[in-house]
Amino acid sequence: MARLEHNNIQLDSEGRLRHFLTIEGLGRDLLTRILDTAESFAALPGRPVKKVPALRGRVITNLFFETSTRTRTTFELAAKRLSADVLNFNVSTSATAKGETLLDTLRNIEAMHSEMFIVRHSQSGAAHFIARHAAPGVSVINAGDGRHAHPTQAMLDMFTIRRHKGDFAPLRVAIVGDILHSRVARSQILALNTLGVTEVRVIGPRTLIPTEARALGVHIFHDLDEGLRDVDVVIMLRLQKERMDGALLPSEEEYFRLYGLTNERLENAKPDAIVMHPGPINRGVEMDSEVADGPRSVILRQVSYGIAVRMAVMSLCIQTHAEVPA
């Protein structure tokens, strides 16, 4: 009961999306609606993503407490394609350095009549916190909070998978690497299970798999070849250099030898398996260049789909608020 109540902060009383904080608590219908909406915005072959007037006159604020040029840029592009005005705040370098609290920052920006916050923060739960304190009528979209969630990244991955594989039901998906610290993996696992795939696997050494990973609804493998056997989708995660310092891994070389994806190891997967990566890739650490640039890699397509998916999420949230009487 408590869980439903908490997650419902994302939904209005009609079950429509008010905020987009996590995949948890969202049903298959809603995820499918996001994918369908994204499809309507997506680029047709050889043509750019459509620009639509859906959010004309609206103010969207990128509130980034953690620097990320790539994610911020795709959100900004998505907002502009929806004809919104965009404010960018890089808070890590301005307000908090002067002792301003997160709530102070929020109130100040709200005073600029922003209707949507795109939030990235280094602490898990930050997007929930901001959503709880945001004024009514303001939507919060989580662009990554700590190790918790990165739901738009997960949805663009789902979009990519659907484009290439069609139906989710028969799929086996393997996520390889640093599950412990990955908000992307957590959101992907939730999305894949909600969309009803056959199996989600995580592959990595014990130090990078959470102790209670099974509670996420996955099968755990420590051997890459075994874990890749007969999968339809391989998702490689980025390995942060600092993992070597915390005694989590001995070296990048050993990691690559055990968990790096090569064409040879990819042979274990289905012949038509696709390879994904949220980027940016550490070539020679997570995967060989020949895989990253090879025929099965859909990594660059993920990036372009990201804009359509973020347009979908933004427009669905704003629509929900637009229909609520003031």
């Binding site: 739960g125 190790r147 918790h148 908000r183 102790t211 209670e212 509670a215």
Partner: peptide, 15 residues
């Protein structure tokens, strides 16, 4: 607590 809930919420765990 380093357990199922913290794993899901992505909160750094205390075993």
């Amino acid at each position: 607590h380093e357990g199922a809930v913290a794993t899901r919420l992505g909160l750094p765990g205390i075993p």
